[in-house]
């Protein structure tokens, strides 16, 4: 009797295990699709969970990314040493040129101030910036985003513009407590209102995952040529106006593209500009909290 009972238990247990394994596979694939749908429909929940997960792993990625950064710095130093003489000549020339520009800027600044006082001009709010380190970039073929090691505790808010020396890099897509994800201007989801500096034509810079985002919604009569500089227009209130973005390139198929000033391969530090504090698109509760500190992290 007991023998029979035992064998029937085995008879039951073995297919149950197999069934469970089969079921686990099906269940997990369905769960993955469920999460995909959920993130499309109910973005807030998935975004919150993702933010917490990135926050948890941020300190580890911070440590892991340092050797690569150190190697990169060392390579740069060696390269710099090799080109010391040439670089010195180049910089001397550039310095001469820049001194001329400085003179022009001083003159224009005083003129601007005089004109502003004449017009009783209300200046825009002063923006604050947070310097931070890139701790993760996307190893994905279809994403262009980076994670930085500053979050809510440092005053980072969703929507802030991320700039790197030469120009606009992206904007804060999600901000956690100690980390934030920056959506780069090259990402397929990125749309930035821009202005052609010389002609003042407005357009939208639409990322398409390629190295050079497209210019869309250009007026039909826009007079644009390759090499024209593109800056943020400030429309929509997300980005401060006048940030350098890049230069216009007309590709073989006649599509207007912008070659960004920022070298995304070498993005090690970014500055987040707290301009959204005056933006009408940011909910009041988000701007009620003053940033605790704006130190580089």
């Amino acid at each position: 009797m007991s023998k029979r009972g035992g064998s029937s238990a085995i008879w039951f247990a073995v297919p149950a295990k197999v069934l469970l394994q089969r079921f686990a596979f099906l269940f997990l694939v369905l769960a993955a699709f469920g999460i995909m749908l959920l993130s499309k429909a109910e973005t807030i929940v998935v975004e919150k969970v993702s933010t917490v997960v990135v926050d948890v792993f941020a300190p580890i990625m911070d440590v892991l990314s340092r050797p690569a950064a150190a190697v990169n710095d060392a390579v740069k130093t060696v390269r710099g040493l090799a080109n010391l003489r040439e670089e010195n000549i180049r910089l001397t020339h550039e310095n001469e040129r820049l001194l001329g520009w400085q003179e022009a800027a001083r003159r224009l600044a005083s003129q601007n101030q005089a004109l502003q006082s004449l017009l009783d001009f209300k200046p825009g709010p002063n923006s604050q910036s947070i310097a931070t380190r890139v701790i993760a970039d996307s190893g994905g073929a279809f994403v262009r985003s980076v994670v930085v090691s500053a979050g809510n505790r440092d005053g980072v808010r969703k929507g802030q513009a991320a700039v790197s020396g030469a120009g606009l890099a992206g904007r804060v897509a999600t901000a956690g407590y100690r980390s934030a994800r920056i959506l780069l201007i090259t990402d397929i989801n990125s749309r930035v209102p821009v202005l052609i500096e010389s002609s003042r034509d407005r357009a939208i810079l639409s990322g398409d995952n390629s190295a050079m985002p497209r210019l869309t919604f250009l007026p039909a009569n826009a007079s644009i040529k390759a090499g024209d500089r593109v800056v943020t227009s400030g429309h929509g209130g997300v980005f401060p106006p006048g940030l350098q973005v890049g230069q216009i390139v007309i590709t073989g198929d006649g599509i207007m593209r912008v070659k960004p000033n920022v070298s995304f391969d070498q993005l090690e530090f970014v500055r987040l500009i707290d301009f959204a504090a005056v933006s009408p698109v940011v909910p009041q509760e988000e701007i009620a909290v003053p940033p605790k500190k704006a130190a580089a992290r």
């Binding site: 694939v29 993955a32 995909m36 993130s39 993702s50 997960v53 990625m61």
Partner: peptide, 19 residues
């Protein structure tokens, strides 16, 4: 799923593919 979240791909894609 962790790969999706850290790299920034739509969550679930790599989870489904790896399984």
């Amino acid at each position: 799923l962790l790969l999706d979240i850290l790299v920034g791909t739509p969550p679930g894609i790599n989870a489904a593919v790896l399984v």
